[in-house]
Amino acid sequence: MKKKILVVDDDQDFKAAISILLEAKGYEIHQASSGAEGFSKARLEKPDLILLDVMMTHRTEGFDIAQKLHTEETTKDIPVIMVTGISKETQVFFKYEPDEVWLPVKEVLEKPVKPEALIKAVEKHVR
């Protein structure tokens, strides 16, 4: 059976490019354009991995959704990879260290993300 990946990003082109790339790699892709939509699709579809953008309707939406997914019983075991341009945007050049409580994600990738790096991360963390 194909592994399911949920891509949550408000940039349509970015979402399309990533979806095509991962579909070519044999994954089944579901898409969401906002944190709320992403959260409900995560509960509904129970994907094997979620790719999550940070800045959508508000600047820290991705962080909030990651926490919400982590505390929700049905979604807490789904691995999350964060894909973000936030450190360039805010000029905060520190690394986001994934963390059980504050940032419950597997990995944080910087936009624009190289296809090889994305595929590597996805293969590493997918359930």
Binding site: D11, D13, F14, A16, A17, I18, I20, L21, A24, G85, K111, P112, V113, K114, P115
Partner: peptide, 9 residues
């Protein structure tokens, strides 16, 4: 950034 993500694959 979006253009690059589309081109690269």
């Amino acid at each position: 950034s979006a253009i690059q993500t589309c081109l690269e694959p």
